[in-house]
């Protein structure tokens, strides 16, 4: 594992702790998009089905289990939050889920000549999870644009997700050059996903960094 991948993963991990800290210490899910969190849970469950059939490393296994468990817990907390004033969580997620699923059925890494049907279904779900992750942040972005007083911690959460994506891009450049490793589906979707965060970082710069006490 190279340093870019590791920094990316740690930033991803930090994003979970930031969001959990916000939910637990402020006892409020205001400004957190339940739709985005439910999409992330879907992403992790679909992608990490290989937990059952492929062992890569303890690092990977534990991170996967943590991502699934933490996002399930976050969805539970946000969904059951009584003081949930998320009327602005209005993104039509079917416009994300259905195209991602259709695309995954046609553009994936299945090899029907090899492997059984279950492995190929896993490949379709893997591609679906990649496409869905690329756009899963959109409901959260829409909320950020609509809410005036977004708490800083939600913004830091988004920033750590953006850093995670940026370092994964660097990781892929490194791996393509030194290892010949490359998954075009993941790379193209990853570039799209990272570009979506560019919009967020403009907002972050304007609303958080410019307001920081000196």
């Amino acid at each position: 594992m190279n340093i870019f991948r590791f920094v990316g993963d740690m930033s991803h991990l930090a994003s979970f702790f930031l969001l959990l800290a916000k939910l637990i210490y402020t006892k409020s899910s205001t400004g957190v998009s339940l739709k985005t969190q439910a999409l992330y849970l879907t992403v992790f469950v679909c992608r990490y089905l290989d937990l059952l059939v492929a062992f890569v490393s303890w690092y990977n296994e534990l991170m996967k289990i943590f991502f699934i468990a933490a996002s399930a817990y976050i969805v539970y907390v946000v969904a059951t939050s009584t003081r949930n004033s998320n009327a602005s969580d209005t993104y039509r997620v079917e416009f994300l889920v259905i195209p991602a699923l259709v695309l995954a059925c046609f553009v994936n890494e299945t090899h029907w000549s090899k492997g059984g049907w279950s492995l190929n279904v896993m490949e379709i779900l893997w591609a679906f999870s990649i496409y869905l992750e690329a756009v899963a942040v959109l409901p959260q972005l829409k909320m950020l644009h609509q809410l005036e007083d977004t708490t800083n911690i939600t913004m830091h959460y988004m920033a750590s997700l953006g850093i995670y994506r940026a370092f994964y891009l660097l990781n892929w450049v490194y791996r393509l050059y030194y290892e010949g490793y490359w998954h075009p589906i993941a790379v193209v979707a990853g570039i799209v996903q990272t570009l979506l965060y560019a919009d967020f970082f403009i907002l972050y710069y304007q609303s958080v960094l410019l307001r920081l006490p000196s």
């Binding site: 991948r5 993963d9 991803h12 290989d50 492929a54 890569v56 490393s57 990977n60 991170m63 996967k64 991502f67 890494e109 090899h111 893997w126 994964y168 990781n171 290892e179 010949g180 490793y181 490359w182 998954h183 993941a186």
Partner: peptide, 10 residues
């Protein structure tokens, strides 16, 4: 390498 490379990322 490329095609069919193991998926060892998160």
């Amino acid at each position: 390498a490329a095609e069919g490379a193991a998926k060892d990322e998160l």
